[in-house]
Design a protein around this nucleic acid. Structure first.
Length: 429
DNA sequence: CGTCTTTGACCCGCGC
DNA sequence: GCGCGGGTCAAAGACG
């Protein structure tokens, strides 16, 4: 009887349906691990002769059924063990790889900085001539004639993307302002407009889900619902209810073409601390948006920062070509759409690489209130080649500590990730 | 009784 | 100016 319960309990863990592609993956892993661990333990404990004898006294069909289930559980147990050892191996090799790449990256950054310094010095030497040319061709007040000397007023404007990228105290808004400022008389208005658009910018996530809401770690209060034109499915409006007067809103709507696809659009900036699950999502989405914003700004203005982001941007652009991430820079409200309905894991990883790169290399844009640079999905065989050292991020630190401490957590995490990378298989089952 | 959801009314921006 | 559509408000009802 106890064994029956144990088997049922064990299977219960596997039956727990994934809520959505994005749904509290990390949050869920410890739960699954705990459950799996305790269930495996109880299975082992119950697998005694005494228990078997007890089972033999039961009607034949029940015993047979239980035996089959027990065999299944044993098989599952074995699978988990092999998975665990496999993951341990990959983890070790990944860690080594990461250390190597981090070292490489640091050396690269150092040489880049030296190169920038050299270029700056050369530009300073050439400046008198250029300034003369600029005054005749460009009436912008920011170029000379402002009585603040040659170098100083341009210092903020002339900061290269590289300098900004490694200035850790630079906010997203500062970054954008700094990028725009050197562009002449309209710079301040441009910066303000950019700031406003940034505040209004939206991140839209498409994910397959049978549920009417995507679990994102935040608490939401519904304040309206509307049938939008061209879509029979109603659009629901939610406001964040975690903080007092938090300005963050989200819209949830099913896709008109495919009702299994849930489109969640976030707008605004949280004014309160977020739970880890929400932080991970917020950082991922804001990183994607910030990259697109910086990419579009730089491409418009032809700033030097482009060279530093081109890799990231092209990487995301490639994603865009596979419909993973698209950007609609509508004048009032730029929106980035992250499509998590694509089953190809390469796409997911590609985006992952781009976002983590951007987060670590450029700046933490707190669009959705992410003040920590926590990336949710770091464990993959295609780990980004260039990231901040593991351990700078509290969440990453926590996860890696958990991995080291508790091997079963690793297995649970792996299964969570595999369910994430193959959403079409798992979510709808 | 407090909190949350529902839903019709209202506001506002945009295009014609 | 008018109509349309998206977004928000707020009263009423549901629920625990």
């Amino acid at each position: 009887m106890e064994e029956k319960v144990a088997v049922k309990k064990f299977l219960e863990v596997e039956e727990k349906p994934p809520v959505s592609a994005y749904d509290n993956m990390i949050e869920d892993a410890p739960y699954r691990t705990d459950k799996l661990g305790s269930n495996l333990l109880s299975l082992n404990l119950n697998n005694s002769d005494e228990q078997l004898h007890e089972i033999q006294e039961q009607p034949l069909n029940q015993v047979g059924l239980l035996r089959i289930k027990l065999e299944e559980a044993k098989q599952e147990n074995q699978n988990l063990r092999s998975l665990l050892s496999q993951i341990s191996k990959s983890y070790t090799s990944l860690q080594n790889h990461l250390h190597l790449e981090v070292k490489k990256q640091q050396q690269q950054q150092l040489s880049d900085l030296q190169e920038d310094k050299r270029q700056d010095e050369m530009e300073k030497q050439a400046l008198p001539t250029r300034q003369f040319l600029d005054v005749s061709s460009d009436p912008s007040p920011s170029h000379g004639n402002n009585g603040e000397g040659m170098g100083s007023p341009e210092k903020s404007g002339k900061r290269t993307g590289t300098e900004l990228a490694f200035g850790h105290n630079v906010t997203g808004d500062d970054f954008i302002n700094n990028q725009i400022r050197p562009e002449g008389g309209k710079s301040i208005e441009d910066a303000q407009a950019s700031e406003a658009s940034c505040r209004k910018a939206r991140v839209s996530i498409r994910a397959r889900s049978d549920f009417s809401l995507m679990g994102d770690g935040c608490q939401w209060r519904k304040y309206g619902q509307k049938i939008a034109k061209g879509n029979p499915c109603p659009r629901a409006y939610y406001r964040c209810s975690m903080g007092t007067a938090c300005p963050v809103r989200k819209q949830v709507q099913r896709c008109a073409k495919d009702e299994t696809v849930l489109i969640t659009t976030y707008e605004g900036k949280h004014n309160h601390p977020l739970p880890p699950a929400a932080t991970a999502l917020a950082s991922t989405t804001s990183a994607a948006l910030s990259m697109f914003l910086s990419g579009s700004t730089t491409s418009q203005h032809g700033n030097t920062a482009l060279s530093n982001h081109s890799g990231l941007f092209s990487s995301l652009s490639t994603s865009a070509s596979t419909n993973l991430a698209t950007f609609s820079p509508s004048a009032s409200c730029p929106t980035i759409t992250l499509d998590l309905t694509q089953p190809n894991p390469d796409n997911v990883l590609q985006f992952q690489r781009a976002t983590s790169l951007n987060l670590s290399q450029s700046f933490p844009l707190p669009l959705l209130g992410c003040t920590q640079q926590s990336q949710g999905f770091y464990l993959s065989s295609k780990l980004p080649a260039t990231t901040v050292p593991l351990g700078k991020d509290p969440l990453v630190e926590m996860v890696s500590a958990a991995i080291v401490k508790d091997p079963s957590f690793k297995a649970a995490l792996a299964s969570a990730i595999s369910s994430f990378t193959a959403p079409s298989q798992n979510i709808n089952n």
